[in-house]
Amino acid sequence: MGCIESMKYEIILRDASFRECRDYIRANCSEYVDVIPGFKIFDKHIIGVPPISIGFEGDLIIFPFTKPCYGTFLMKIEDHDEAVRIRQSALKLKK
């Protein structure tokens, strides 16, 4: 998982489908943005079927993380700077 693996994270869903992750974020996060595959999060290119939703609860970032053997995890990591960067980058994508 590179740097994400070494961070303090919480797994919300494991071995989930991309649709389950998107549906969870849209139903449970007070704020979310949609990004395209390859969008960088914690310096990793995000894998998924577009639109990929990334949720926020303040500085908590909720996002899908896919590995070939383990399917998709829905993860939660707290990081103020990265949350700000993702919100701003996603806004630019929309324009």
């Binding site: 595959p37 390859g38 894998i47 998924g48 079927v49 577009p50 070939p68």
Partner: peptide, 15 residues
């Protein structure tokens, strides 16, 4: 052969 494979294919197509 699994959902992750579909996600990788979509990512490659999009990129």
């Amino acid at each position: 052969h699994n959902d992750a494979g579909v996600s990788y294919a979509a990512t490659v197509q999009s990129l």
